[in-house]
């Protein structure tokens, strides 16, 4: 997936300034930068949460994403949430659509992958924060035919037990040949997971390269410490 010159502004503030990134299939790309640098804004533009004002996106159509503040459907069960994420449909079709056994099986497989099988029929609002983050990821994984996976701080607030689980999940998706873009603050995760990293600061890409290259970059260090 490639972007060319994505620009975005909110009122008078330029949130994204000519951001061009390239994310390879089967590779995990990291997006890092200090708070307010535009990371979430970029993902929001790429996922149609924000209307793209300027710039081009190639191969950006079939995506799935998580949200930083797990935007889940609190009164739906885990199973129902995953069923809904699988495929979108029109209202007319949905009135006559009763979940098939296959669909339920696929959803249950994902529930198993995130190790919440005993909560298959629990309403999301009754889950703990950590469990919700897992459901958030599982929901993104449920989207059939997605080629791109955007993860917005998937590790924030996860317990020590869940972190390796999420790591494995992400690596599995990478193996499937998907484009994976992760926004993260945890530098260890960036180092161990990401193949390539882009660094944003004040809406501009100030550095790109392997995690080590970026983290040793003088400008990057200044950007993080300067603020």
């Amino acid at each position: 997936m490639k972007t060319y010159n994505i620009n975005h502004h909110f009122g008078g503030i330029q949130a994204l300034n000519d951001v061009s990134i390239f994310c390879e299939e089967g590779k995990i790309t990291g997006l890092i930068g200090p708070n307010g640098s535009g990371k979430s804004t970029l993902v929001n533009v790429l996922t149609n949460v924000l209307h793209r004002m300027h710039g081009k996106v190639e191969n950006g159509k079939h995506f799935a994403r998580t949200f930083q503040d797990a935007k889940l459907w609190s009164n739906l069960t885990v199973l129902e949430s995953f069923l809904m994420a699988q495929k979108s449909e029109s209202w007319l079709y949905s009135i006559f659509h009763f979940s098939s056994l296959e669909e339920i099986k696929s959803a249950k497989e994902i529930i198993e992958r995130i190790e919440l099988t005993h909560h298959t029929n629990t309403k999301v609002r009754n889950l703990s924060y950590g469990q919700r983050k897992l459901v958030e990821i599982g929901r993104a994984l449920s989207v059939t035919n997605s080629q791109i996976l955007y993860l917005d701080e998937p590790f924030a607030g996860l317990s020590d037990i869940s972190t390796p689980l999420v790591k494995d999940l992400i690596l599995e998706e990478k193996k499937k040949g998907k484009v994976v873009l992760i926004i993260e603050h945890d530098m260890n995760i960036i180092r161990t997971l990401c193949d390539y990293v882009y660094v944003l600061d004040a809406g501009k890409v100030i550095a790109e390269g392997t995690p080590d290259e970026c983290l040793n970059n003088k400008e990057v260090k200044e950007a993080y410490l300067g603020l």
């Binding site: 889940l72 459907w73 009164n75 739906l76 979108s88 449909e89 209202w91 949905s94 009763f98």
Partner: peptide, 24 residues
């Protein structure tokens, strides 16, 4: 009990997420 019933509840619970997952 149909998918429609599920989708409207999702709209109630989080409209933006429902929109992002492709539903009109």
């Amino acid at each position: 009990t149909s998918r429609f019933g599920l989708i409207i509840q999702a709209i109630r619970d989080d409209t933006l997420a429902t929109e992002v997952f492709g539903y009109n």
